[in-house]
Design a protein around this nucleic acid. Structure first.
Lengths: 140, 140
DNA sequence: TCTCTGCTTGACGTTGACGTAAGCGTAAGG
DNA sequence: CCTTACGCTTACGTCAACGTCAAGCAGAGA
C-alpha cells in the first residue's frame, strides 16, 4: 500500500531543492493538485511521487507540457477505451525513442569529454601542451 | 588533414534542420565565427564541426553559455599556462559529471516507460485494463 | 496584544533562445 | 529589365519557466 503521509510546501521545497513558487506554478499548470486545509496546501504521497517524476523529467530535458502529457497518461488512459489506451502506448513509445536518441548523444559527449581530459592529463604529465592533439578532439 | 570545403548558410540550415536566424544568433553569441565574402557568410569545416557540437550540446540540455564555455576551452586552453589548462580540466570534469547524472536519469526513465508499455500490452492482450497495476508505475 | 513565521493570492519582471517582419543589396535566369 | 532566390542588418515580439515584489490572513509564542 501507499504510504499516507502528508507534506507542507516547505518540506517539499527543502527535500527537492525547489522554491515554493515552483510548486505553485506546477499546480497552476495542472501538474499536481494538492488538497487544501483552508487555504494552505496539503501535499499527499501521490503529489510527492508526481513531483519526483516532474523533476526528473525536467532534468532529462522534457518540457512541462510533455511532462503533463505523461502524467495525464498515467492518470487517465485506463478509464478510456482501447483507442485511448493505444494512443497512450504510442505516446509512451515516442518518449522512449526520444530518450534513446538522447542517451546516444550523451554517450558520445561522454566519450569526447573523457578524451579531452586524458589529453590534458597526458600533456601536463609530459610538460608539453600539444595544441594540435587537442584541436583534434573538437574537430572530429 | 581536415577537409577544406566551405558551406553557405542555406546548406547548413538544410543539413542540420535549423533556421538561418539560429546560425546568425549563434554567431552573435560568439559560438561560431564564419568568414565573409563581402557581407555573405562563408562557413568552413571548422564552423560546421562546431555547429555539430552546439546542436548535440543543446540536445543533451546544455545552455548556449555552457556550450560556449566548452568551445572556448577547446580553443584557448592550450595557449594559457598550466593554471589555465587545469581550470579547463576542471570544467570538463564538471560537464562529465553532469552528463553521468543525466544518463542515470535517462536510464531510470527508460525502465519506467518500458514497464508502462508492457503493462499496457499485457492488459490489451488479456482484454483487461488494470488500473491498479498501471498506477503502480507512476507511484513507485 | 503584538509580533513573528509561514502560507496565500495576484500581478508584473526576467532570462534564454530564438521567431518574425521590415527594408535593402546582389547575382542569375527568362 | 524584371523577377526570383538568397543573403544581409536592425529591431521588436514571443514563449517557457519561473523570480520577485506587494499585500494580506492565521496561528503560536512573549
Amino acid at each position: 500500500m501507499t504510504i499516507n503521509r502528508t507534506y507542507t510546501i516547505r518540506q517539499l521545497t527543502k527535500e527537492f531543492d525547489v522554491t515554493a513558487r515552483t510548486l505553485r506554478f506546477y499546480e497552476d499548470e495542472g501538474l499536481i493538485a494538492p488538497e487544501r486545509r483552508g487555504q494552505t496546501r496539503i501535499y499527499a504521497s501521490r503529489d510527492r511521487a508526481r513531483i519526483i517524476l516532474i523533476l526528473r523529467g525536467r532534468r532529462v530535458g522534457f518540457s512541462l507540457s510533455e511532462i503533463r502529457e505523461i502524467l495525464d497518461l498515467y492518470d487517465t488512459h485506463h478509464d478510456g477505451g482501447v483507442t485511448q489506451t493505444l494512443h497512450a502506448r504510442k505516446k509512451f513509445e515516442e518518449q522512449l525513442h526520444k530518450l534513446e536518441r538522447q542517451k546516444i548523444d550523451i554517450e558520445d559527449s561522454l566519450v569526447e569529454l573523457k578524451r579531452a581530459i586524458t589529453l590534458i592529463d597526458d600533456a601536463v604529465a609530459k610538460g608539453v601542451l600539444s595544441a594540435n592533439a587537442l584541436h583534434q578532439v573538437a574537430a572530429e
